[in-house]
Amino acid sequence: MIQISPAARDALQTWLEGLSALRDASDNTLDAYRRDVAEFLSFITAHKGEPQGLKALERVTVSDMRAWMAHTRSTGIASRSLARKLSSVKSFFRWLAEREGFDPSAVLSTRSPKFHRKLPRPLDEDAARAMIDTVSLQSPSDWIAARDMAVVTLLYGCGLRISEALGLMGRDLPLRDSLRILGKGGKERIVPLIPAARQSVEHYAQLCPWDLSPDQPLFRGARGGKLSPRIIQQVMEKSRMQLGLPATATPHAMRHSFATHLLNAGGDLRAIQELLGHASLSTTQAYTAVDLERLLDVYDRTHPKAS
């Protein structure tokens, strides 16, 4: 990567530290911000022919932004990813402008590329149940089979993100009727625990050969360390191939399935938003679009005049 000025590098680090302290941003989020803004600063350095200090950054123009957008597009990046990078750059410049006292309009007025939001692809109820059962057949070790089944049951039965399920600790035992979940941005929510999920986790805990002390992760890898999300992803990959399910049958799809099945059963959209830990209702409303899309597909295939 092209060298950026020490002042710009220090400003980027200070901004990231502020996000970490004030917003409790995750490590993955901070890494993405760091990468996006550093790439932008590197481009501006090459574009201008010299490292850009803070005063030079104040003079970034609409033309500079267009050049960066065009360059980034030329790498074959998707519109969704470019929109994310632009959002990172805008956030950084908004903070920098407030700190240094300049007008960031040239950066903030840059339009984000349009893209079609990918809708969740949930499994139907039978496929979700089959996935849970098949996951438990992938390991000859009883405790690992019980572990994998417990994790996937939490994803579908409680709508947890994979990071949230694997973030549970020994102190969460014994399980009660609800779980206190620390979600994105450090936001806490209470999630009801269905009996099947509680029983599945308790069964795993009884078989687990490792010490599940309060300050240790609840779900362990084969060697006793914290279980990696990739292990669950691989187990589900094997299971979906055996079941003939599409590649969209991922851990996150189990969470989507939880929400969609609740919605289909008459669940309130606001209540589902709370259960999922969505900051915005518009995120949860994507599930209504999925439901409508599926309904229209059935209509097109079965209506007497649809031919």
Rank of each mutant, 00 (worst) to 15 (best):
Q233R: 15
Q234V: 12
V235I: 14
E237V: 07
E237N: 01
K238N: 13
S239I: 01
S239D: 03
M241I: 07
Q242F: 08
L243P: 09
L243K: 07
L243D: 04
L243T: 02
L245I: 04
P246S: 13
T248V: 00
T248Q: 10
T248H: 11
T248I: 00
A249T: 05
T250H: 07
P251Q: 08
H252T: 08
A253N: 01
M254T: 09
R255S: 02
S257N: 08
F258D: 01
T260K: 06
T260C: 11
H261S: 02
H261L: 01
L262A: 03
L262Q: 04
L263F: 03
N264D: 15
A265M: 02
A265R: 15
A265D: 14
G266S: 02
G266R: 04
G266C: 05
G267H: 04
G267P: 00
G267R: 08
L269Q: 03
R270H: 11
R270S: 09
R270P: 11
A271R: 13
A271S: 15
I272N: 09
I272D: 10
E274K: 14
E274G: 13
E274H: 13
L275N: 09
G277D: 06
G277I: 07
G277Y: 06
H278E: 02
H278P: 04
A279N: 13
S280W: 00
S280R: 14
S282F: 04
T284A: 02
Q285F: 07
Q285I: 02
Q285T: 09
T288P: 11
A289Q: 14
V290T: 08
V290I: 04
D291P: 00
D291A: 14
E293F: 01
R294P: 07
L295G: 00
L295I: 08
D297A: 15
Y299S: 05
Y299Q: 10
D300H: 15
T302L: 05
H303V: 12
K305M: 06
K305C: 12
